[in-house]
Every structure is written in structure tokens, then in C-alpha cells.
Simulated scan of single mutants.
Amino acid sequence: MGAVLPLLALRAFTETARLGSLKAAAEALGVTPGAVSQQIRLLEDRLGLALFVRERHGVRLTPAGASAYPGLLRAFDQIEKSLSLLESYSAQRTLTISTVPSFASSWLVPRIGRFSALHPDVEVRVEASSKLVDFKRDRIDVALRHGLGHYPGLATFRLMTPVLLPVASPALLANGPAITSPEDCLKYPLLQDSDRADWALWLQAHGVEAGAGAERGPSFEDDLLLLRAAGTGQGIALVQDTHAREDLESGRLVIALDRPWPARFAYYIVSRPDAVTRPEVQAFIDWVKAEAAESAQVPSMLAAH
């Protein structure tokens, strides 16, 4: 064999062997199945032997392919780890943070300037996305995610557990019936989360069996949309206190009834275990924990009367 290694062909072979399918390998590599097939054919022609047996529902390794596959899999895994290490050196003073748009807008972004003031040598990038982070593929250092805390293989730290509050525009409540109990909220249009579950759970937690009435009303994918709808007087929204704080402080919204209820999920800091050893990542984790603790001590705003 020549001195130049056919890396593209070897990668196509390894992914196909790992996944047992040309189509799946193509999706993993971001190319067409035809391109993967061509690379494998070039490798087989170069070696003068077959590496796969083509079957109706995929491919299986020949004895020759099976003997080479484990070593190549380890080799490409080591290459990826080495590349990640080099990338961490090249961007070791850049900190990329991913979180969902509502949390970024209402909680993180208004505070992140304080971290930059404490660490002016760290370049901060905030990416707002609802997609799950693939730390192996995406160049993300830290993710702040809303969930149950099950992130296998990753370093995970609990950040905060928000509560749900019913909020509405002052004008809507001023012109409508008084709200003195959770059941009174049913006299208004209810703005729903995407699952139409939060209102039913909140009412049930406060002793109200509302039936189908708790699930009626327009639904919104994100708390930011719920807040905007509530701000224009479309109904009462049940949202996280961390998301509503700015609108409550400005007076655009008021608490319809001061009956907070713990949300089903908490916010977690998630990162690769090796990334936590970087000083800027650990500095951010320490800082955001302190900010969350301080935020939790802020007294609740007064409910509307």
C-alpha cells in the first residue's frame, strides 16, 4: 500500500460496519449512500478483497472486514478525541453556552454581563436553542437545560427549580371578575403550554377538579410566547417565575393569584466531564450557581388585588 492512507474510505467502512447499513452510515457522515458505497468499493478495489456481504436489509462484514473493524473503530475514536483536545486548546478562552430561548432571554442574558466583568479574558457566546446538545458534535462547553437531570456520561449540576405562577395583564384583571381562589382562574381564558398539562396539574394541586375546562385555550410552544400573549390581554398564563420576573417588575404583567407551584422539571448545568477541568468552564459553573442562589432569595412580587 502507498504512504497516503485512504482516510475517507476507511471512515466510510468503519461507520458502515458500526451501523450495519449504508444509508445509516451516510446519514452519520452527512453524505449520500452512493458516496459511501463508492468509498467502500474504492477501498475493496485497492485491497483486492471484499469487506462486506450485501444483504437485503443491510450489510454484514466478511471475515477480513471483521478482523480490521475493531482496530479502525478505536483509531477513529482516538482521532476524534485528539481533535477535540486540539480544538479546546485553540479556543480555550472562548466559552460557548447553550440554553433554551426563554431562559436565555429572561434569566441568563440580563446577568451574563456580570460574568464578563469578572472574567474579561473569557469570550462568551450564548446560543439559544431548544434542541438537545450533542457534546460530541456541537462546539458547546456548557448547556443549561430544563429537564429531569438524567444526562448519562455528562457532568450534571442542579441549578434551580422554578415555580409556576398565574400571570395576566393588569387591564384584563381590572375589567374582569375578582380572583380570590384557584377556581376563579377558570372564569378567564387560560393560555396553555404546548402539552396542555400545566393548568390541569396546577388546579389539581390546589384542590380544583376542572376537567376539560383546564385544557381549553390557545397553546404556545415557549414561555416567551405565553408571556407575550398574556401581556396583550388574551388570558391568564401559567409560567415559570424566572421567565416572568422582568414583565412583573415592569408592571406589564401581575400575578393573578399568589399560589406558586413547583414546576415538573428543574434547570441543570450540563457539560462534558473533561470540559469541567477548564478554568473558564469551572468559573462559569461557580458563577451561575451563585447567581441562581441569589435569584432564589429575591422575594416574590405582590399579587394583584
Rank of each mutant, 00 (worst) to 15 (best):
L173C: 09
A174Q: 08
N175G: 04
G176E: 08
G176A: 05
P177A: 07
I179T: 02
I179Y: 00
T180W: 04
T180Q: 06
S181I: 00
P182R: 01
P182V: 00
P182F: 00
D184R: 00
C185T: 15
C185M: 12
C185H: 04
L186E: 01
L186H: 03
K187R: 11
K187H: 13
Y188R: 05
Y188N: 04
Y188L: 13
Y188M: 06
L190A: 11
L190C: 05
L191H: 05
L191N: 02
L191A: 10
L191P: 00
D193R: 04
S194L: 06
S194C: 04
D195C: 05
R196K: 13
R196P: 04
W199N: 02
W199Q: 05
W199G: 03
A200L: 07
A200S: 13
A200Y: 01
L201R: 10
W202F: 14
L203R: 07
Q204A: 15
Q204R: 15
A205V: 02
H206N: 13
V208W: 05
V208S: 06
E209C: 11
E209L: 09
A210Q: 04
A210L: 09
A210N: 03
G211P: 09
G211H: 10
A212C: 05
G213W: 08
G213A: 11
G213L: 13
G213Q: 14
A214I: 08
A214P: 09
A214G: 10
A214S: 15
E215Q: 15
R216I: 00
R216H: 04
R216P: 01
G217I: 00
P218E: 12
P218I: 08
S219K: 15
F220N: 01
F220M: 03
F220P: 00
E221W: 10
E221A: 14
E221K: 13
D222H: 11
D222L: 07
D222E: 10
L224M: 04
L224F: 01
L224E: 02
L224G: 15
L225A: 11
L225C: 01
L225S: 12
L226P: 00
L227F: 03
A229F: 11
A229C: 14
A230K: 02
A230P: 12
G231H: 08
G231F: 09
T232A: 11
T232K: 03
G233R: 09
G233S: 13
Q234Y: 03
Q234L: 14
G235D: 02
G235F: 09
I236D: 07
I236H: 09
L238E: 15
V239K: 06
V239W: 05
V239Y: 05
T242K: 14
A244R: 11
A244L: 09
E246N: 09
E246K: 15
D247P: 07
S250M: 08
S250T: 13
S250Y: 02
G251W: 01
G251N: 14
G251H: 11
R252C: 12
